[in-house]
Design a protein around this nucleic acid. Structure first.
Lengths: 397, 397
DNA sequence: ATATAAATCAACTAAATTGATTTATTGACA
DNA sequence: TGTCAATAAATCAATTTAGTTGATTTATAT
């Protein structure tokens, strides 16, 4: 017998859920008139009127858009997300650089601060974050500060396993420390899953309900999306694609990561979007081996989960990412795959920015997305669960 | 942007959902008093009173159980599932035998018919099913016939790929044919997923919310359970563990199946629960190789999905199944698994009966389980979705 | 006899629904 | 070109579903 810890439905819980659903539909499709929302949700026109009235009063939706005429009947009045409806901070802690971004309700980056380092250190990362946050907050109006939902953090898990310099991370709870210093709720999620979440929420391409996502940076990671929801798993370790076992007793991370390429090269690669100067032989060998293990992992995931799409993104020049996708397609077709349908392969749309954007999406998810779209953990501060508070109780602006 | 086709919540939809939740809790925990149900669901005692009153009137719950005294206060009056609340037919079509069972609301097998064959043929399977169903129906009262929810079918997918004798299955829709001949709704699901669903719904061991399930019979298959729900995937091919790619360019089904063991042996093995007479050398080699590929697949699934448990069951003597579990545990620990927590391994509790029981659970899921627990497809007959009809509209018996 | 806890009764509330009404447009016709 | 019916969006008013809360009844242990 399996234990399903479902929770009962109540009329009281419905409103908040339906508010989130409407915001999500507009985020996905762009500005929508109320009639289209009624159709998409299955709710009555009246219910949509009631819900959107409150969302407009709360400053989350904007009804001021151009009326759409042309068809018979009253013209459509599209409702758009209000860019200033909420603001979010996103912190990415990487192997060689930390990055803090301020993102608005539409996913536009409004501010950005970064700090490169030879290796990440918890104390210095905390100090950088506190200082950079203070700087950013100083530039906001009172109204904007009141609408800051919180901060999300994206870091690789098990950092301390990656070298003795990273040992200080063991046992540290930077999320808690930041939440106390900054006096705001802070969420934490694996960087690969964050990148995947960013692609779902802010990415520019249409995505199916189910797909696998690889993110290749200094480390290799990723995420799994099922039924439109990013999975995190019981111990928040789902999408640990770097740990996926591949032939020869190795794992994906032993082969397909930028750190492997840097080792072969004997020098570090640029941290910005400038071109990578690589010898063709080294590049080809890395591409070949990486594509082999990644396609092996992709096929395994497809056998287990029946996924129609695999997205590949990473902190690398777009041309290299596209070459990796192309090589994977060849390798995958050449592997025995009786009984499974080969997935479509596609490059991601966010590249280097994906992790910080995904971090910022953690508080957005918690407050504004329908149940578990991005599956964020509970925040540190406060005993109350924001999911239980309807958005209109934020009050009109 | 990912597309989430969520549906809005309404007070009207809540009742049916909460009825299912309460039935599920009692199915899982055994007879429960109303107070415990209120606690488990988060609903008020009054709401539980209202819901259970209707479920009792509909003949699905039985309040006649012994009062539990011993604690201070009014004694507990446990509510139990009514065995005759609903009946279900389950059809398993295997490589060497078809089996039809009649199962009651508690999961007890009340009737069973079987037909062995050298290989399955759609016409003969259909005729057997129609005849056996008529026989079973003839033995029921009118009341019982009215409470028959429908039939579920468990078959391997892509049967026609397994030999030219199975070619007639290509393009056949036996589900539709049976639904028309029997004038009842018929559901279809992969046999490995059915076995997994049976373990969830009728199994006797406590299971976590997330686990992987292997079912080793003539073919190898399985299922994945996430958040207490069996996944089927966009094209109903999730849990295709037989197609999982393993080292040496092979797949799980090339190594870990009873058909491989029969080939090595040069003769078929018994279809009932009698002991298997195997040479130790052949057995050991099969165990060794099978355990290797299964543990490889299990580790991959754990990397992607963060699963704490792997269940292994199959159509084989329990001792052999247990030996397979033990061998897998050794292999898995010996594989490199940096960054992942090894799952617990455990044998299933249903063995040979799992597939037919799981087939019968398909209509049960559709009508009585909370949303998508077993993720059954929609039935063939009728335009209406039984999920939208509250159970008490079935009327009192 | 009293405290305790289960279960129910009665009254109230949240958030939908349905049906009638208002509003702004297109397209037909004088 | 001006007027009016048809159309469809959006809103208003009343109703329904299915919860909740607080008071009451009931059966037990101490």
């Amino acid at each position: 017998m399996s234990s399903t810890t479902s929770v009962a439905w109540t009329p009281q819980g419905a409103r908040s859920q339906n508010e989130r659903l409407i915001l999500w539909l507009i985020r996905r499709n762009g500005p929508m008139p109320r009639a289209a929302l009624a159709q998409a949700t299955g709710l009555s026109a009246q219910a949509v009127t009631n819900i959107t009235r409150e969302l407009i009063a709360a400053g989350l939706l904007d009804a001021g858009g151009e009326r759409q005429r042309g068809k018979v009947g009253q013209p459509l009045r599209p409702l758009a997300l209000a860019p200033d409806g909420a603001l979010f901070l996103g912190l990415k802690v990487g192997r060689r650089m930390a990055e803090l971004v301020l993102v608005d309700f539409l996913g536009q980056i409004r501010q950005m601060r970064s700090q490169p380092y030879p290796f990440p250190d918890p104390d210095r990362t905390r100090d950088f974050t506190v200082a950079a946050t203070a700087e950013i907050l100083a530039g906001l109006t009172d109204e904007q500060r009141a609408r800051l939902s919180g901060m999300g953090m994206a870091t690789p898990y098990y950092l301390w396993d990656w070298g003795h310099e990273m040992e200080p991370w063991r046992g540290r709870d930077l999320r808690l420390e930041l939440s106390e210093r900054l006096a705001m709720p802070v969420w934490l999620e694996n960087d690969g899953s964050c990148a995947c979440g960013a692609e779902m929420i802010f990415g520019t391409a249409e995505l199916p309900e189910n797909f696998l996502y690889f993110y290749i940076a200094h480390f290799a990671g990723g995420g799994v999306v099922l039924d439109g929801r990013l999975r995190h798993g019981p111990t928040r370790n789902a999408g640990a694609l770097g740990s996926y076992p591949v032939p020869d007793g190795r794992q994906v991370l032993d082969v397909a990561s930028v750190s492997v390429l840097e080792s072969a090269l004997g020098r570090p690669l640029p941290l910005d979007d400038s071109a990578w100067d690589l010898s063709p032989a080294i590049l080809q060998e890395w591409l070949d081996k990486s594509a082999t293990v990644l396609s092996h992992a992709a096929l395994g995931a497809v056998a287990v989960l029946d996924l129609p799409l695999v997205v590949i993104d990473g902190a690398m020049p777009p041309a290299l990412r596209d070459a990796l996708v192309a090589t994977m397609a060849v390798k995958m077709a050449a592997t025995r795959h009786h009984g499974i349908t080969l997935p479509v392969l596609r490059a991601g749309t966010l590249g280097r920015r994906a992790r910080a954007l995904g971090a910022a999406a953690l508080p957005l998810d918690e407050e504004f997305l329908p149940g578990g779209t991005f599956s964020a953990p509970r925040p540190v501060r406060g005993g109350h669960d924001p999911r239980e508070t309807p958005m209109h109780s934020r009050g009109a602006s």
